[in-house]
């Protein structure tokens, strides 16, 4: 059982969190400019990297999304930060 640290609530049990997306994935805006292939790439393709990964997670109990940098092999969490757009 992992312990993740929500930037707003502190360390909590992993069952309180949901994975949201890989970080840095840009949604084509407006989406109609994307080809079918580009759109499918955005929707379905993940790098699922082995080792260091940067991901967006949701702390379900407080409703805040945040960036988590972790290692998918050792499961070490090295950084948690609020989303960049947030005026925290």
């Amino acid at each position: 059982m992992q312990i993740f640290t929500c930037p707003f609530c502190g360390p909590r049990d992993e069952t309180e969190f949901h994975f949201a997306a890989e970080a840095g994935k840009k949604r084509p805006m407006p989406a109609e400019t994307a080809t079918d292939d580009e759109w499918a790439e955005y929707l379905y393709m993940n790098s699922a990297s082995r080792g260091k990964a940067q991901e967006v997670w949701l702390h379900v109990t407080c409703g805040e999304f945040f960036l988590m940098t972790r290692d998918t092999v050792t499961r070490d969490v090295t950084a948690v930060t609020p989303l960049p757009g947030r005026n925290a």
Binding site: R27, G85, R86
Partner: peptide
């Protein structure tokens, strides 16, 4: 649905302009 709204509020828009 609340989480879909939250994700858009926090990731697409200015989160200071709305509250869910």
């Amino acid at each position: 649905v609340r989480m879909i709204l939250e994700e858009a509020r926090q990731d697409v828009f200015d989160p200071a302009k709305s509250f869910i």
